[in-house]
């Protein structure tokens, strides 16, 4: 056995094998996606930026039940509620800390009125530290902006739920 080992070492067989592996890879088709120009397809289940949705008549869906903030493992959601003049319960404050959020989607699962949703948006940024807090207005604006796309994605996924 020792002699075989010695011959193996001296003839550099293992090195040549390694070289052949990398040389094969050299001529293989490249899998790189040229990102900003070309994008990989996204699943409708993709969990991106959070948003708050409205009913068709423009009324916000959220009823301040605080289930999302209770289920949130990162405790990223802060909610304060009040009673409106018509007797309904609504939020006055709905803040999501984007740095705490881990995009697990539990809030979406917990929501009884399908108010909080995760959109497909993953390309966004902030330039100031304070901007990490997504206020109610911002979340609603995101929901309005990507309403059609989000609804379509949720419909596609609904058969599997």
């Amino acid at each position: 056995m020792k002699i075989i080992q010695l011959i193996k070492k001296l003839t550099l067989i293992d090195f040549i094998k390694g070289f052949i592996v990398t040389l094969k890879a050299f001529f293989r088709r490249k899998v790189t996606v040229q990102y900003p120009e070309v994008k990989t397809p996204l699943s409708p289940r993709f969990r991106g930026k959070l948003a708050l949705m409205r009913y068709d008549n423009g009324e916000e869906r959220c009823i301040a039940c605080k289930l999302c903030s209770a289920v949130c493992p990162a405790q990223a959601i802060t909610i304060e509620s009040e009673e409106r003049s018509d007797g309904s319960r609504r939020t006055v404050k709905f803040d999501i800390d984007a740095f705490k959020c881990i995009y697990c989607g539990f809030c979406e699962e917990a929501c009884p009125v399908d108010s909080i949703v995760e959109t497909n948006i993953f390309e966004y940024h902030m330039t100031e530290n304070q901007q990490r807090i997504q206020t109610k207005e911002m979340l609603l604006a995101t929901g309005d902006q990507y309403r059609d796309q989000t609804i379509e994605n949720k419909k596609k996924d609904s058969r599997y739920r």
Partner: peptide, 13 residues
């Protein structure tokens, strides 16, 4: 470029 190709990437472009 060569290392990129050997990693099945395209390298700087």
């Amino acid at each position: 470029k060569v290392i990129g190709y050997m990693h099945a990437r395209v390298g700087p472009n």
